[in-house]
Simulated assay, not measured.
Amino acid sequence: MAIISDVSSDYFRIPLPVPLSDSTHGLIPNFELVTVTVRDADGAQGVGYTYTVGRNGRSVQAAANEIAELARHQDADLAEALWKSIWWAMHYGGRGGPTVLALSAFDMAIWDLKSKRANLPLWRMLGGYDPKVPVYAGGVDLDFPLDQLLRQAEGFIDQGFRAIKMKVGRKNLAEDVARVAAMREMLGDSFPLMVDANMKWSVDEAIRAARALAPFNPGWLEEPTIPDDIAGHARIVSEGGLPVATGENMRTIWEFQQMITIGRVSYPEPDVTNCGGITPFMKIAHLAEAHNLPVTSHGAHDVTVHLLAAVPNRSYLEAHGFGLEKYLAEPLRIEDGFAIAPERPGHGIEFDWNRLKALKA
């Protein structure tokens, strides 16, 4: 048994060196980081985190403090039992939003603790498949001028990426088409290029956009419309002519089940920091496998590399624009198009707490 002696949380506002932008959130000059630390009676500890794109992080921390009260003195080895008891204890006032983000960070910390106690890297603890995971660079770049967009892509290639995602969803579809055409011309016909609309369009607009972008052979069209319109996704997949990825704004395994079976999504895309944590992320990955689908990811690439390294149906890992590289002892390792899951016990993330504490708001 690993009895939980303490659970603590912290909040930081992280400035971005270059303000980012997408079609839904607009300009993003910073993001909010909420960390959760779980300690057991033997002195071992695990760390988890979640984030926002600049708003509502204090609510997430408040929910994390509620979870702390529920988790103290419980057995950290029983990840499934802990998750279920907290889910139902918080369900009436939760089920989504800040509650699930906080539960995601807590569950991540539990798995980090479990893996450290077993002296295993997380990806091996979860079953183990292949530590080399295909990775793409996720640009958050909707408002970048074209020359800056192309320079960013060149920089990604220099860093070892062999696949790139760019933002679409500008006011004029013709601008999106021109920007994707320029990227395709620079990258070449065979270079994997994905596009992400961040829920910008109605279903009919998304179908028109997909048809307009199809000649440039994007690997997928991501979040073409709101995640709540499951039937609409089925129309976009069948009428738009492009594979569709979605899931970063979905909060439960049951939402993914409906999107896979009714919405016919091509690439389920959970985010471990907001889908409830590692426990449900792995279930979503296996659910996708049961439907003969690849699974991709959103955000938190330093942790998610372990999760995709543990499943045979993994597609690309997203290396996200909200990277924590400046605040980590050992950032994600990328080699010729692959992210390498580390062999350090747990998820292997070691925060530079002194540097983070200078950013406490």
Rank of each mutant, 00 (worst) to 15 (best):
residue 263 G to F: 10
residue 296 T to S: 12
residue 305 V to A: 04
residue 288 A to T: 04
residue 292 N to T: 12
residue 298 H to T: 11
residue 261 T to M: 15
residue 285 A to M: 11
residue 316 Y to E: 01
residue 338 F to I: 06
residue 303 V to D: 00
residue 314 R to L: 09
residue 334 I to H: 07
residue 275 C to G: 12
residue 337 G to P: 04
residue 301 H to N: 01
residue 277 G to F: 07
residue 348 G to A: 09
residue 302 D to S: 02
residue 337 G to F: 10
residue 302 D to I: 03
residue 310 A to L: 02
residue 321 G to K: 10
residue 346 G to K: 01
residue 340 I to G: 04
residue 282 M to R: 00
residue 350 E to N: 13
residue 292 N to D: 14
residue 335 E to F: 10
residue 300 A to Q: 01
residue 331 P to E: 02
residue 312 P to T: 01
residue 311 V to S: 09
residue 332 L to T: 05
residue 292 N to P: 10
residue 256 F to T: 05
residue 254 W to T: 15
residue 341 A to W: 01
residue 301 H to E: 12
residue 303 V to L: 12
residue 259 M to I: 12
residue 356 L to V: 12
residue 302 D to V: 04
residue 282 M to Y: 08
residue 270 P to S: 10
residue 332 L to M: 13
residue 289 E to D: 12
residue 267 Y to I: 06
residue 253 I to E: 14
residue 268 P to N: 10
residue 325 E to P: 08
residue 350 E to I: 14
residue 245 A to T: 09
residue 340 I to S: 08
residue 356 L to N: 02
residue 321 G to R: 03
residue 300 A to H: 02
residue 341 A to R: 05
residue 261 T to R: 15
residue 343 E to C: 09
residue 349 I to W: 01
residue 297 S to I: 07
residue 248 E to T: 10
residue 267 Y to M: 03
residue 278 I to M: 03
residue 288 A to V: 10
residue 255 E to N: 13
residue 353 W to N: 11
residue 328 L to C: 11
residue 357 K to V: 07
